[in-house]
Computed example of a mutant assay.
Amino acid sequence: MTRFGYTLFTEQSGPKELVRYAVSAEQVGFDFEASSDHYSPWLSSQGHAPNAWVTLGAVAQATERVELFTYVTCPTMRYHPAVVAQQAATLQILADGRFTLGLGSGENLNEHVVGKGWPTVKRRHDMLREAIRIIRELLSGELLDWKGTYYEVDSTRLWDLPAVPVAIAAAVSGGRSIEAFAPLADHLVAVQPDRELVSGWHDTRKARGLPGESRAIGQIPICWDPDRDAAVQRAHEQFRWFGGGWDVNADLPTPAGFAAASQFVRPDDVAQSIPCGPDLDAIVEAVRAYWEAGFTDIALVQIGDESQDRFLEEAAGPLLSALRSASS
């Protein structure tokens, strides 16, 4: 059965609003909630970037049923992996075992803020591999001394460990990242409905003899609104950066850079890649590509803070029913 999630999009909403939306999303029937983890929005028009971990702690206490994800945290520069391990263990306790730690190699937009520069893709992957190993070791509860290529951990252990172990999901975008992270993580994260990514992940884990069910967690932006023109305009104002692709988006350092890179993107261009307007069938068809590619979990990003209440009150319930019917 495909699980459908709601994205707590920290780039477009403040922390109190996100907690309120999280409660409403659980009540309307979403299976999980995934929080982005940014220090800056992609575009100034989005206007927010509260701390994801503080917000998720509040969400964990305000909700009872939904699974929670970071989608995704970069544990290599802005956060030391030892700090991420402690955050994940604490959040898992607060969430009573509902949390999965989503990790990725990050974006310059968020990681440059600590003044350590921006490494090459290969170095970022190597840093993430080492970070995951450190996080795994600390989540075991054992005392850890570590002197690696990128990180040191000095006589450290976690004192508060959850009863339910923290599962780790890793973001991948191609064969090289699959080879790097499928042996280290439990689940896959990707933002494109690429069947080869999912099959490659499963094949790599099977070849390594790794046990357990491995989930594939995807994410898709939508812009529901009773007025299609308003939806297209809102998607263009806040989400035109999306078309740049990961190779470009990972390297741009500021919202001004994203604005410049997307200045020639037209509203019609955005509407061709993001379902906009009141047509729920069109949204279902856009999401269909993910479950047909083998994704087990699909998170929806409803674009625009000002649209969240109405989306959750009017559209989310019927949309979830349509998605579950079509994917069954």
Rank of each mutant, 00 (worst) to 15 (best):
residue 319 L to T: 08
residue 52 A to R: 02
residue 71 Y to S: 13
residue 229 D to S: 13
residue 132 I to T: 09
residue 47 G to S: 15
residue 209 G to L: 06
residue 17 E to P: 00
residue 204 T to N: 13
residue 92 Q to T: 09
residue 267 P to N: 13
residue 92 Q to M: 09
residue 91 L to P: 06
residue 203 D to K: 12
residue 195 R to W: 04
residue 164 V to E: 11
residue 48 H to I: 05
residue 69 F to L: 15
residue 217 I to A: 04
residue 207 A to Y: 04
residue 139 L to Y: 00
residue 192 Q to D: 10
residue 119 P to L: 03
residue 151 Y to E: 04
residue 219 Q to Y: 07
residue 143 L to K: 14
residue 61 Q to C: 13
residue 26 E to K: 12
residue 303 I to W: 03
residue 53 W to V: 06
residue 107 E to G: 03
residue 209 G to V: 05
residue 132 I to M: 14
residue 20 R to D: 10
residue 28 V to E: 05
residue 186 D to E: 15
residue 136 R to A: 05
residue 217 I to G: 00
residue 66 V to F: 03
residue 324 R to L: 11
residue 301 V to S: 02
residue 284 V to G: 11
residue 242 F to R: 01
residue 143 L to E: 15
residue 163 A to C: 06
residue 181 F to M: 04
residue 177 S to D: 04
residue 73 T to S: 10
residue 121 V to W: 07
residue 127 M to D: 04
residue 175 G to F: 03
residue 67 E to M: 13
residue 86 Q to P: 07
residue 132 I to K: 01
residue 39 Y to F: 15
residue 181 F to C: 00
residue 110 N to P: 08
residue 79 Y to L: 13
residue 295 F to K: 00
residue 131 A to Q: 01
residue 166 V to L: 08
residue 66 V to W: 00
residue 284 V to F: 12
residue 128 L to E: 05
residue 154 D to H: 14
residue 150 Y to D: 10
residue 306 E to S: 14
residue 69 F to K: 03
residue 291 W to S: 02
residue 44 S to N: 13
residue 10 T to Y: 00
residue 167 A to C: 09
residue 59 V to N: 04
residue 169 A to G: 07
residue 196 E to L: 08
residue 196 E to M: 07
residue 67 E to L: 12
residue 270 V to A: 07
residue 71 Y to R: 06
residue 282 A to K: 09
